[in-house]
C-alpha cells in the first residue's frame, strides 16, 4: 500500500503511512505540537496507552466519516485515518484534561526532586512544570515503599513509580527471561521482582534509561552529582554484545555514568549492555565523538560554555 494518509494536527498538515499513530505523525511534524508521552516508548513494542498524558482531541475522524471522536483519544494508540484533524495545543479541553492527568500522576509521586537522581532529565518534572498545579488536592497519605535493590547496580524507588510499564517491556523484549513485573492491581500495583533472582542479564541496565521518572536509578551514579553539573559527550567503543554507542556524562575528567543515547523525546533507540554501562568508566575505554546534542532549554545545557576552543598560540 503506497497510499498515504493526510492528517492535520493543530492546523499543520502532513502525510503519513497508514497505520501510523497520531503521536508518531505529530513527531514527524515536530515542534511544540507533539503531545508529551510518559509511557509510550518508540523502541519498545506494545508500550503506550497507560499514562494518558498524550490525550488529544480528534475534531474530525476522517474524510469519509467527518464526525469528531466523542472522547479525547490517547494519541500513542490511535492510528491515523485519511483526512483526520487533531487538536492538541489549540484545544483548551485537551490542556485541561492533561492538567488532570498530571495531577493524577502526582498523587502518589513524592516531590523529592532535590534528592532524586533523575531530576533534570525527568519527564514528569517537565510535565508538572508545564501543566501541574502548585499544590495537591489529595488529602490521604501517599503510598510508600521501602527502597529495593534490583541486583547490585539498580535501585528501585517504588514511591516514585508511575506504573508506565516501560521497564517491564524492556525486561520482556530485551532480556531472555523476565524476573520482574507488576504485582497487584489498581492502587496496589507495584513493580516487583524475585529478589533472589537478581537481574544479571546483560541488558537489564536499560530499564534505568527507559524509566521516565526516578524509580529505577543507577546505583553506581547514586548521589554522585546532579545531572546538570555533568557534561554529556557522545562516545563509542567496540562491544561484542551491543552497539557500543553511548553518552558519557563527564564531571571534569571523570566519567560519572554511562547511558544510552536519548533522542529529543528522551527515548533510547540503541540499547547498550551492562558492561558498557557499569564497567567502562574511563576515558581510554571510549572513542569520543563530541558533545551530545542537548536541547538549549534543558537544564543540562545550563552553565556549559560550548564555544569552540581557539588555541592562542599557533603550533606549526
Amino acid at each position: 500500500m503506497s497510499e498515504k494518509y493526510k492528517i492535520t494536527i493543530d492546523g499543520v498538515s502532513t502525510e503519513v503511512e497508514p497505520g501510523t499513530t497520531i503521536l508518531n505523525a505529530a513527531r514527524q511534524i515536530g515542534g511544540d505540537l507533539v503531545p508529551p508521552a510518559m509511557c509510550y516508548y518508540s523502541s519498545l513494542e506494545g508500550s503506550g496507552g497507560k499514562c494518558r498524558t498524550c490525550l488529544v482531541k480528534v475534531s474530525k475522524g476522517s474524510e469519509k466519516d467527518p464526525r469528531p471522536m466523542p472522547k479525547l483519544m490517547a494519541s500513542c494508540r490511535t492510528t491515523v485515518m485519511d483526512g483526520m484533524e487533531v487538536q492538541n495545543l489549540t484545544s483548551p479541553e485537551v490542556q485541561e484534561a492533561r492538567k488532570g492527568v498530571v495531577e493524577f500522576l502526582l498523587i502518589n509521586h513524592p516531590l523529592d526532586c532535590p534528592v532524586c537522581d533523575q531530576a533534570g532529565e525527568c519527564k514528569l518534572q517537565d510535565l508538572s512544570y508545564e501543566h501541574g498545579t502548585e499544590a495537591t488536592r489529595y488529602e490521604f497519605n501517599r503510598r510508600t515503599f521501602e527502597r529495593i535493590d534490583i541486583g547490585d547496580k539498580i535501585q528501585l524507588h517504588m514511591n516514585r513509580c508511575i506504573l508506565c510499564y516501560r521497564c517491564v517491556y524492556v525486561a520482556n523484549q530485551l532480556t531472555d527471561q523476565r524476573v520482574h513485573g507488576i504485582v497487584g492491581r489498581g492502587d496496589m500495583a507495584e513493580i516487583s521482582t524475585y529478589v533472589e533472582k537478581a537481574i544479571d542479564n546483560d541488558f537489564s541496565g536499560n530499564m534505568i534509561d527507559v524509566c521516565p521518572v526516578g524509580a529505577l536509578t543507577d546505583k553506581t551514579f547514586r548521589f554522585k552529582n546532579r545531572v546538570w553539573f555533568t557534561k554529556p559527550v557522545w562516545a563509542h567503543r567496540d562491544c561484542d554484545k551491543c552497539c557500543g554507542r553511548v553518552t558519557l556524562w563527564y564531571k571534569g575528567d571523570d566519567v560519572l555514568r554511562v547511558t544510552g543515547r536519548k533522542d529529543e523525546y528522551g527515548e533510547v533507540h540503541e540499547f547498550i549492555c551492562n558492561t558498557c554501562r557499569y564497567d567502562k568508566k574511563r576515558t581510554k575505554d571510549w572513542v569520543i565523538e563530541g558533545p551530545a546534542k542537548v536541547e538549549r532549554q534543558s537544564v543540562i545545557s545550563a552553565n556549559h560554555y560550548d564555544s569552540k576552543v581557539v588555541p592562542v598560540i599557533d603550533k606549526r
Partner: peptide, 9 residues
C-alpha cells in the same frame, strides 16, 4: 541541605 545543587545552578 540535601545537596540538590539548585543554589550552585
Amino acid at each position: 541541605c540535601t545537596a540538590c545543587g539548585l543554589c550552585a545552578l
